[in-house]
Structure formats: C-alpha cells, structure tokens
Design a protein around this nucleic acid. Structure first.
Lengths: 153, 153
DNA sequence: CTGAGTGCAAAAGGTTTGCAAAACT
DNA sequence: AGTTTTGCAAACCTTTTGCACTCAG
C-alpha cells in the first residue's frame, strides 16, 4: 500500500507534478477500493469522509491527471458515468470486464485473451493497435444461481 | 432500402409502436449513413434537412426506442457522446470497432473474432455472455501512411 | 515573489422530462 | 373519446472552467 503510494508519487514527480494532500487522498481511495470501478462522484464522497474540505473539481482534475499519466484507466460501462480503474502494476494491456446485466456487478479478467485476435487485426486491417476495450455483458455466476432457484419454485 | 424500412416498420408494429413520419425520417437517416456512427445531434441535424419541423427530443426518443428493440446499438467511444449504429441484418453479435486516435475515423469489423474467447470466458468464469463490446484504439492505415511521409521529409 | 494547485460557483454539454397541442384509431 | 406521439422549453446530471485565494519553493 505505502509503496504503491510512493510509486505513484514518483510517477507524478517525473512528470513534474506534486502529490498534494488532496491528490494523495484521492489516490488512497482508489487504492483502497481497487475492485470497485468508482465514478468521480463515488471517489469524491469517499475522499470527503477523510478530507471534508476537498472539492469535487479537484477530484475531477486529479482523476484526469492520473488518466493522462496512465496510472488509472477511464472506462465507460454505458451508464452515463465515467469510472476510474487503477492500472495493475506493469500491466501492458488493459484488463477486460464482465458486467452483469442483472445485478450490475463488475468483475475483471486480468489475463490477456486477445493476443491472437490483435495479431489478426493488425495484419488483416493494417491497423496499429495501441489499446483495446473489451466488455462482456451477461449474467454472472450468482444471478444464474438465483434464477435457477426461482425457476424451481 | 425500402424493404429495410418495411422490416423495421414490422418490428415496431410487433411491439405495438407506430412508424410515424418522424420515426421513419430518423430511420432513413440511419440507413443512409450506416457507416457513420452518428450521434443523436448528428441524426437530428440530418433529419432536420428533410423534415425541419422535427424536435431533438423526438430524435432522442426514437433512438431510445430503436435501441430497446435492438434495431440499433448505442455505443460509446469515450468522447462523451452516445452514438447509434444500425444492427446488421441477422447479426447475432455486435460487430467490433477500430477507432483511430489520430484522425478519429471509425471502421468496423463484421467478422466475429471472439468465438473462442467467449467460449473460454463462459467456461472459466461461469458467466453467461449476452453481448460484448470490443473497441480497438490505434492508428489507422491512412495515418500510418501519413506518418511515414512526414518522417521522410 | 512566482507558479502550481485548490475550492467555489457558474457554465457547459448532452440527455431527459413535463406538459399542452396534435395526430391517429 | 382515448391513446400515442410530438415539439418546446425547462430541468437534469455529469463534467469543465473562470477566478480569486492559498500554499510551497
């Protein structure tokens, strides 16, 4: 945890930005809720619990900055809000997501499933891929279970 | 063209909606600009050329309706606007997109590249996939050409 | 002192909604 | 008549921006 904050601090410094208290609070919220795909508002509310004087605009500015430095990825699941996702250490490729259309749960696939597909696209379409977004929408394990139970009643 | 309008008319009717003149004008714009990934505003302006009395809200409502009926897909390339894409006839799976980060051009991959990947995800994560979104961001053929020319100067 | 960073409030931009009028059945 | 659809304007929500203030070097 601490060393991840340290690492981000260095990343900011090497781009001549400072890790201000507000930025640090924001980063910590992201680290503490790594699994949660928080929206800017979510982050704001969480940061506010510990640093009530922070402003929403600052959170937005920090998230934008972190996105620029590729410390977080800005994602969109189609619900009209941007969400922010910490990059895994040293991950060359953005991970994939499974979004449950029943309960809204989001889980992650860290494994890169697209090696072969990317190679094909680069060749066949003569397109140089920089990054990709892959989101599966469907029904998660839990909701499948629940449906079974309902059916049996 | 005409038969595609007819088909959509039937789809609406079977869900007890009417193909009003405004809806038809909207559908025609989508058909005429099938390659273009239009935003609601884009559609509105194009519809307005032929039916100046139409309102923006009607276009939004029509696009929402068409999305519900799965006649179009609502997509988001991360530029803060929703775009609408006619489904290909009988396409079981939503097609993939290549978005150029230089010039913004969007092209489509109709071929389904994810058969194997989906099978793996369904098995390994016990997740029932309903649909997916796959977007590659990178540099398109043209922009790669242009870069070469610039380098050579 | 100077520039970077902040908080607040206002503005912006895309989308949705309330409502009365219009269209259709 | 009754239901659906429409156009307009207002409301809404997320995100961005302007500006004066603060803080660190």
């Amino acid at each position: 945890m601490e060393n991840r904050v340290e690492r981000i601090k260095k990343q900011l410094h090497s781009a001549s930005y400072k890790l201000t208290p507000q930025r640090e609070a924001t980063v910590r919220v992201l680290l503490e809720n790594e699994e949660d795909h928080l929206s800017a508002e979510d982050v704001y509310l969480l940061v506010k619990e510990k640093s009530p004087e922070i402003g929403l605009a600052t959170v937005y500015r920090t998230l934008e900055l972190l996105t620029e430095l590729k410390i977080v990825d800005k994602i969109n699941f189609g619900d009209g809000v941007s969400r922010y996702d910490l990059r895994k250490e040293g991950a060359a490729h953005f991970h994939h997501h499974l979004v449950c259309i029943e309960c809204g749960a989001v889980s992650e696939i860290l494994e890169d499933l697209l090696k072969d597909v990317e190679q094909k696209v680069e060749q066949d379409w003569n397109f140089e891929i920089k990054y990709h977004r892959l989101i599966f929408h469907g029904i998660c394990e839990n909701c499948k279970e629940n449906e079974k139970i309902i059916d049996e009643e």
